[in-house]
Design a protein around this nucleic acid. Sequence first.
DNA 1: GGAGAAATTAACCCGTTGGATAAATACTGT
DNA 2: ACAGTATTTATCCAACGGGTTAATTTCTCC
Lengths: 251, 251
Amino acid sequence: MINAIQTTTQRAPGLAKAAAKRTLKWQRDPEGMRLRILEAAKQEFSAHGLAGARVDRIAAKAGANKRMLYYHVGNKDDLYLAVLEGAYDKIRSEERGLDLEHLDPPEAIKRLIEFTWGYFLRNPEFLSLLQTENLARAKHLKRSTKVKSMHSPFVEMIGTVVRRGVESGDFQVAVDPVQLYISIAGLCFFYLSNSATLGVIFGRDLLAKDAKDERLAHMVGLVLAALTGQSAVLFEIAKAPKSRAAVAQTV
Amino acid sequence: MINAIQTTTQRAPGLAKAAAKRTLKWQRDPEGMRLRILEAAKQEFSAHGLAGARVDRIAAKAGANKRMLYYHVGNKDDLYLAVLEGAYDKIRSEERGLDLEHLDPPEAIKRLIEFTWGYFLRNPEFLSLLQTENLARAKHLKRSTKVKSMHSPFVEMIGTVVRRGVESGDFQVAVDPVQLYISIAGLCFFYLSNSATLGVIFGRDLLAKDAKDERLAHMVGLVLAALTGQSAVLFEIAKAPKSRAAVAQTV
DNA sequence: GGAGAAATTAACCCGTTGGATAAATACTGT
DNA sequence: ACAGTATTTATCCAACGGGTTAATTTCTCC
């Protein structure tokens, strides 16, 4: 992963000359270094939180000298904020790529839930960073002008989808898009971010493939059932792809 | 709050004699001290996380000498685990007090959501502690035999309610109680534990009275609509108590 | 009323950690 | 090829933080 970033570097001129001179004690690569530092910092902050993160470990992981962190990014707090901003930037950019306009409303909502779920699964550090920042009551985020201007396109998207759904008769309620957004995020977020403690309490692995499939089916069923009023049918549809036994058994 | 605990102490004999001798340099009160330490530790750990917590601050807040923490509870980790176990103990005990048996199924689900929401609102430190522990991937919880044996009565309660609801025709689906439990907890938890970052992003105070009322109404509406299939009606009912404008406006 | 145990205080120890300083090395333009 | 600048390294340090040691005060029981 870090290697991939390193190769990103495009040193413009004098490349042949530098390659010939093979007695270099170290490479010079500001952008690459900065990226490696931020990547290492992301790992460290998400693994240990803000207070638990160690500047020396970040430097080591980035293959850099500790002084580099201060040179390229700033002190520990600056580093943390840069990581946080990067994380928001990334998810917002992926969110924009998801166009729900051409899907029929129930399908669009399903797609939205699947995306949110998938993104959280693929980016567990994002969840950790959010947790950390909320533990700090968003102290750092409040000072970030960048993040404040990065509005999630989802709220508008949801608004449009819901409106279309009500008009087409697919949905029975014109639910508030912000509430729905928070609900979808919450359904996904809580399960994943708290899987450790929940796993201990329930005595089972919530991150096993089957468990995750079952969870996704449940969430899609729950939200779509609420919107369409077709409880039974939708829960069945959502459940179909996998583990069809689970629900019936339990009751 | 701390004072209330202090008074808990019941020093058995020799009270009159001790009261007479007024040249005491300090009081002797093991149980009271232990409680004050745990209360202070709870505050500290929930405010700053495990790594961010400061042993000296805990001592100061407890009105104790630092050495007392080690004498009465143990090292920092022991202290943390004790707090965590206490937090679980408290919520489980309150959960047990909630009997849903005599309510009709939709009312029971509503009550369940309201309790969860209310408990989280009244005990924000519990949310923080959970976040902290999950950040640590439940490392400490796994070692706790106490917590593992403290099963939430909710899963069974929900199972019974759902079964009754399906039989009575109120509910259209026999949803998995564990999934429903996680969903309800997640809907409440995410909104509250992430209110800081969400507040910054949406540019509004999610903890204002109106916002909280609206959220509760939404959650009740969402879950009950999904179970009963009565989307429109239930969202209206849930919304009724307060701010009736919000939902209609947005779409 | 005094001896031994329990509870509490004061002071210290030492590895860790964020951050700083100054010197060395690579690159660029001229 | 040389001067000046940008990047990187090696080393240091003062403050902090968890934990410990030893002495002091209170309580209990006989």
